[in-house]
Amino acid sequence: MIKQGFSLAMLLISPLLLASQTAEQLYSTAGGYGCSACHGKYANGAGNVGGNIRGASFEQLQIAFEQQPTMQLLGKSLSDIQKMKLIAYLDELSNSELLEWTIDLEPESNELELTTSKPAQLVIFNALLEPVVVDLSPLGGPNSLEIAAYSSHDWQWLPTPGNYSLTVGTRRLTLVVPQNTN
């Protein structure tokens, strides 16, 4: 059942990702450093100054380029078409529900509950200074995914109701997918 859900999710998500590859590249390289420098690899903020910009509108982007001193020069270097590509990419990201899990020194049990029936994107940030191995098989993923020291990795899947548990050493994340989500 999980594998079927996963396959369906990939059928839904993969064409979108492929179609927007150029936009994703632009997101990670604009200005040389990429929007990711201030907004995180997945536009999720990731503790950086720019914060989460998933789903931002063209108008919001224009205002930021005009009013944020650190963004004004970048705004002038991008064409309207490039800006629209960025917006399309941010819109595509917002079509997935973002779930974030930070693996840090303090072993913790975390629980995240999904609130929509959208495809989900789990972003795992390994804040440790050594690699960790995560078993993503409960979500239809690899059973030993290595995440490098101080790196992020994402996993997208189509949630079906139930509880899913991921562990790294003594750290545990429980994902709760309710029966009725909007």
């Binding site: 200005g31 040389g32 450093y33 001193p69 650190t70 963004m71 020069l73 970048l74 002038k76 270097s77």
Partner: peptide, 17 residues
């Protein structure tokens, strides 16, 4: 010490910070 206080800074022309 004076010699080692020279910094070569490599930045993008569009970055303000």
């Amino acid at each position: 010490f004076a010699q080692v206080t020279s910094i070569e800074l490599y930045k993008s022309p569009t970055c303000g910070c």
